[in-house]
């Protein structure tokens, strides 16, 4: 039987990575509980909100209660890391890995770079914006300006976040920059369907992870986390809409 502190550190680390990279709350709770039980701990209890993790269990070795809390400061969207930690926990629970190996691999997952290089994400934003814009306006000519706008928005978002480190304000500025570029192209007469180009430009900013997680958390009974995620998604959407509205005001009024 391993020491309770080691098990505690392993479970918390797994939960921390999942929550940080955009997993649903109930999945974090479920993963930590299963890992704790697989390690032989009794009375495993977890409580996870969007910004903190609590874990407590009773060790059968020393018959004492262990409880720790962990604050999650940073949050990113990187579902491939969530998938890797999920896979790792499944392997641990079914007994394929020891806790030492799990710890080593968790460290590797934490230290590994993003699944895709950042230029590839810029490219995907451009292509995604262009292709999605066709679904809205069905004009082939306008796909290129929309793709350019989507690319600019994604680059702007990453740059602003690197400099400012303020989530909602960076989203506001990024959508403002993107919409400004799109409106400039409209003014230059390159665009037939303004609607389509603006949407293609700001669609890479959609807060998809908090939105879907909010619905799922609310449904699985994690009301605190669900409401918190919903608020995050709402403020994000409002920032993005505000950025576009400011850019539109400059040109339309």
């Amino acid at each position: 039987m391993e020491k309770a502190d080691d098990i505690m550190a392993m479970c918390l680390h797994a939960g921390q990575l999942m929550l940080r990279y955009g997993s649903e709350t109930f999945r974090v709770e479920d993963t930590m509980r299963r890992m704790g039980q697989a390690a032989g701990m009794e009375q495993v209890n977890t409580f996870v909100t969007t910004t903190a993790i609590f874990l407590s269990f009773k060790s059968p070795v020393d018959q004492r209660d262990h409880i720790q809390m962990l604050r999650i400061e940073e949050r990113y969207q990187d579902l491939s890391k969530v998938t890797s930690v999920n896979q790792l926990s499944r392997e641990y629970v079914s007994g394929l890995l020891t806790s030492r190996e799990v710890k080593k691999q968790l460290k590797e997952i934490e230290e590994s770079p993003m699944n895709y290089p950042v230029w590839f994400i810029y490219l995907a934003s451009g292509i995604g914006g262009g292709a999605f814009s066709y679904l809205i306006g069905s004009s082939i000519m306008d796909m290129l300006p929309a793709a350019l706008g989507g690319l600019v928005t994604a680059v702007a978002l990453v740059r602003y976040q690197m400099r400012l480190k303020v989530k909602f304000f960076s989203e506001f500025l990024a959508s403002f920059t993107g919409a400004l570029i799109a409106m400039l192209m409209v003014q230059m007469g390159l665009v037939m369907n303004t609607n389509q180009v603006i949407i293609g430009t700001i669609i890479p900013l959609v807060p998809g992870v908090p939105l879907t997680n909010a619905v799922r958390d609310l449904m699985s009974g994690d009301l605190v986390a669900g409401v918190a995620r919903g608020a995050e998604a709402a403020v994000s959407s409002m920032s993005i809409a505000g950025g576009v509205a400011v850019a539109l005001t400059i040109f339309f009024v």
Binding site: S80, N115, I121, A124, G128, A131, L135, P204
Partner: peptide, 19 residues
């Protein structure tokens, strides 16, 4: 439309860093 939808969806999956 369907083809472009496929492209767009995959691009978004990459934006969300899905393997």
């Amino acid at each position: 439309e369907l083809g472009l939808c496929f492209v767009a969806t995959i691009a978004f999956a990459i934006i969300f860093n899905i393997p």
